[in-house]
Nucleic acid binder design. Structure first.
Lengths: 303, 303
DNA sequence: GATTGTTCTTTTGTGCAATAATATACAATC
DNA sequence: GATTGTATATTATTGCACAAAAGAACAATC
């Protein structure tokens, strides 16, 4: 059986390639996180720095945004935001979810539901998900980086036990409940004033209305960023790395929980309280607060 | 400039391919860890299971061992060990260190000494280390799995700050000093009797003479295994995973420390003492002991 | 002086055919 | 019944030519 070509054709949209569409989405997300408004300039180099790319692909992304009506290009002045970057805005206007994203989600679902054997060959995956070798390669690289699959010495790959276990969610929280307070309690923990200010501002924005407009994915992402910024204060990259890995796996489950907006609101208030204590440099107290914050999460799965 | 072919030719040894030679080494290492003696049978399927491979490559490895005089093949009875698998035995008899291992070590050294820029393109790496695309790909996969390099969104890769920092060693220990005692202190921590027995036996073997014959790499590896087995007792894969990652990075520094055999001896005695306390299920005490063990390592870098 | 527009260079992805490595099945042997 | 020996099928790697993407340099513009 040869792989079918029909399902692998490129999304024929005016905006640009899949990759460019994706980038356009990243730009909008960044604009929103930075609190930009309609009319603000989208400066190429700044976006390039923020997204670890050069100006060339950024410019393509901006053109895609223009095609989608989200940005306006002005001769010799580059691009400006055409609309306030509210959460929903970007997605529907841009191409449908990328095929690779869909496949990724399908695989994640299959693994969580144990519909896949723990050990599996690349050829088998290519058949199951109708992927070219190159596509699969990229997918596996990504999943491996997220830490829930690893190469076997011979042919094939093995999914990590971390994901398949039914209590994975609880285990992840137990792990966080250890490392996050411990990071704050490290002797040379310190969080620059401007970081605290930035975090507080973002949390306030969420509390004052943005929450309602955010998707589950965005809420999750925002929560992760908050905690990752704080743990960074320990000045020990091993803590940061470990948290990031846990979070990238937790994200797999996160899609299944649903948002309890009231719980979220209390949750964000806890974040703000934590920031106050951190600002006062009462780190021992902050560590305890963090432990409490993580031990009984107000919203299932979304801390 | 085209890549030179001279340096990439296959090691022309009778034993087999580079890969097979490597596998032969793994078999010997396994035999030693299992405490096997000269004359013991090397059962193909058992080796295959232990090394996550099928019998086909194992058999090639065994043939390589025979060629090296370390195993003896008997018709219809497979292979038996020809010599006691003492540490040094395998290496010199087999092919010189694999080229890819040498390159790996060179890259690691260059990163540790900051002789490489944090961001670097694949093409540049291919030039610097005279690697084919495929070779480099494998190398990068491996390094990425170990967690000290990551793909950038555009072209190129970025080395993790985890490695380049001069205090990385200390930071790694600080991280372990958090997660390892915490794992033991988890409410459902438990270590099966047989695991404790196996660990104790191995530590005793090291103490009673094997230590002198072990290379730095082997000593390091053995230490890691001990700690990883113990942390596994928490039944939480996130702890295990995190420790494994730290250890795979610590290994980069480990080569530079040298063995203080007396310190090592005290170190192993601490391991044995820890096992006693664990066997008695006095977990709180064990956690404290582990914390002490990690806070002031008797041997620099080798815990 | 910062930013955009444009051009040119370099780097990387992709598909394919040939080749190598690994897995599997089953008969033969102890 | 477990293990080896052997043949066969499956799976993955490699090198190459071509296409696509990203980076870098510099002049033009605000």
């Amino acid at each position: 059986m040869t792989t079918s070509d029909s399902s692998r054709q490129r999304a024929a949209r005016s905006g640009g390639s899949e990759r460019t569409e994706h980038l356009a989405g990243l730009i909008m997300a960044l604009a929103r996180r930075e609190g930009m408004k309609a009319g603000d300039r989208l400066i190429e180099q700044r976006l390039a720095d923020a997204l670890d790319l050069s100006r060339a692909p950024i410019r393509l992304g901006l053109k895609a945004l223009e095609a989608a009506g989200l940005a306006r290009g002005e001769p010799n002045r580059g691009f400006v935001l055409a609309k306030n970057p509210t959460s929903g805005a970007a997605q529907p206007a841009l191409a449908a979810v990328r095929r690779s994203e869909q496949v990724y989600a399908t695989i994640a679902g299959d693994v969580l539901a144990s519909r896949l054997p723990a050990d599996i060959a690349e050829a088998e995956l290519m058949r199951r998900y109708d992927l070219s070798r190159a596509e699969l390669q990229r997918m596996l690289d990504r999943i491996a980086a997220e830490g829930w699959i690893a190469r076997l010495p011979g042919y094939g790959w093995r999914f990590a036990e971390t994901v398949s276990s039914p209590e994975a969610q609880a285990k992840a929280m137990a792990f966080r409940a250890v490392i996050e307070p411990a990071a704050i309690a490290q002797p040379d923990f310190t969080l620059p004033q401007e970081v605290i200010a930035r975090l507080r501002e973002r949390q306030l924005r969420v509390l004052e209305g943005e929450l309602e407009k955010m998707t589950i994915g965005e809420i999750y992402h925002s929560g992760c960023e908050f905690h990752e910024e704080i743990i960074r204060g320990a000045g020990n990259p091993f803590f940061v790395e470990a948290l990031k890995r846990v979070n990238s796996i937790r994200r797999l489950f996160a899609y299944r929980s649903f948002a309890d907006r009231d719980g979220m609101r209390r949750h964000v208030r806890q974040h703000l309280r934590l920031l106050d204590v951190l600002e006062a440099r009462r780190y021992a107290e902050a560590a305890k607060l963090m432990a409490k914050h993580l031990q009984r999460p107000l919203v299932a799965g979304l801390s």
